[in-house]
């Protein structure tokens, strides 16, 4: 997070990790992207602002991350051009880490595409963004419970103020492949799998 640059063409630094930032339209992916890379992607308060994509890099604990800001999508079964771009980017970067961005006020909708990503077996991390908006609407999101359920790191952020962004950057290296079967089991209350997420940074919920 110390150095950042953004560019249209992706040239990959040696040994870096590609991070695909994915989520519903209008959840603040570009705002988060700007926060993490110091870039200047267009952010506006209406959906469909990112129809192309941008990439940027940052260094966290000596590791280079190339973040790609993917257009918003509701699912991985594309229904329009922007969604097709999103799906193609997932396909083109099979080794990438996926950062799924959720709107804290609309988590259930965001989790639909999050689970679709997890089904693909890509390492994931979830950012629950717009925590300030949720707070205003008196919505609380149980981050610890979500992390326990999904078995991947879940971090709360407010991209507009920068809250939690540092933590998100640090947690990127802990992104991991989710086990869809285990998630279903935990949802149905079977197999009291209460083991904590590997590398949890002590959220207190485990």
């Amino acid at each position: 997070m110390t150095e950042g640059k953004a560019e249209k063409n992706i040239d990959l630094p040696e040994g870096g990790t590609i991070v695909l930032m994915l989520g519903n339209p209008n959840v603040g992916k570009s705002a988060l992207f700007n926060r993490m890379t110091g870039a200047n992607a267009v952010v506006s308060n209406y959906p469909g602002t990112t129809v192309d994509f941008m990439s940027g890099t940052f260094i966290e604990s000596g590791h280079i991350y190339t973040i790609i800001d993917v257009p918003g999508t509701y699912s991985l079964e594309p229904r329009d051009a922007a969604e097709e771009v999103a799906v193609r980017m997932l396909r083109d970067h099979p080794d990438a880490t996926v950062m799924v961005v959720l709107d804290a006020t609309k988590t259930d909708r965001g989790l639909y595409v999050a689970l679709e990503v997890m089904e693909r077996g890509m390492p994931c991390i979830v950012a629950v963004n717009m925590m300030d908006a949720a707070h205003e609407k008196k919505i609380t999101v149980d981050i610890a419970a979500l992390q326990r359920l999904l078995g991947v790191p879940v971090v709360s952020t407010t991209a507009t103020s920068g809250e939690g962004v540092r933590n998100l950057a640090e947690m990127l290296r802990k992104a991991q492949v989710a086990d869809i079967g285990a998630i279903a089991e935990r949802l149905h209350g079977e197999g009291q799998a209460r083991e904590s997420v590997r590398g949890c940074d002590g959220c207190g919920g485990c």
Binding site: Y74, S75, E77, R79, K106, D108, R109, Y112, V113
Partner: peptide
């Protein structure tokens, strides 16, 4: 159902 489910 997919089209509607993914919209919530």
């Amino acid at each position: 159902a997919h089209n509607l489910n993914c919209m919530g």
